[in-house]
Nucleic acid binder design. Sequence first.
DNA 1: CTCCAGGTTCCGG
DNA 2: CCGGAACATGGA
Length: 280
Amino acid sequence: MAKLASLGTPSLSLDLSLQSGQAFHWVREGEGWIGAIGGQAVYLEQRAGELWVNSEGAAAARDYLALDHPLEAVHASFPQDPTMQEALRFCAGMRILRQPAWEAVATFITSSMKQVAHIAQISHTLRRLYGERMEWGGREVFAYPKPEVLAVLEEADLRACALGYRAKNLLASARLVARGEVDLEVVRALPDDAAREELCRLPGVGEKVANCALLFGFERLQAFPVDVWIERVLRERYFQKKRKVTSARIRSFCATYFGPYGGYAQQYLFHHARLTWGKK
DNA sequence: CTCCAGGTTCCGG
DNA sequence: CCGGAACATGGA
């Protein structure tokens, strides 16, 4: 095994951050994880709080793991209600990863009506077939395929990756991005609402996927994706049962109640609900 | 077998 | 603005 560099002992749970349905390609490797950060093969490991990374991946890892996010302030900003505080205890140390924009947009286009395990399967298939191949410690690692690469495929190629009806959307979106008709660097410079609107021009990107992309790929930490799990939590814990709750009502509630780090709050609620709902 | 999954889009009230 | 239905695939 090649030499590792220490990134110190940041306030971080590496496992939670890599295994909470934000990114879908990290693979267990011994005591740690192996995967790609953009075009860099990276090995990560956390032992007794100390974070280790292959030296070539150190800079990328520091950025990707968002070690500069003020995690204590994020935690302190959450509302004090019991549901939120329970999720916080369950997820403390989880960070919102700073992922490449296209990777976030594309993987969440493929996520609709799919379980996390299957999103991961799709991600691995796409990477292996169409992503840049790298290597670390004798292990193959694949980058997420660039839009220009996907853009020249046929729909059947993507259907063969088990994308189902999402194949058409991923292909069309890749073509729009590759042609520059939707420019993700322009999106990055827009304020949240305008950025969301621009992302929704991509086929297969509605409000939920756009919010995932904003949160995971554009560092908009207030973006609050509402999926089936979050909606379940909200209806059970934040709204009176028996009352009809419209999506518009949910949207306006989430936009303010969870505060400036609403995206973090959402991710903690999501992960906690998904792993504990209906158990014990 | 049935049910459901980090939804989007289109269509009729 | 709202609720329904179609859309693919595989894990539970």
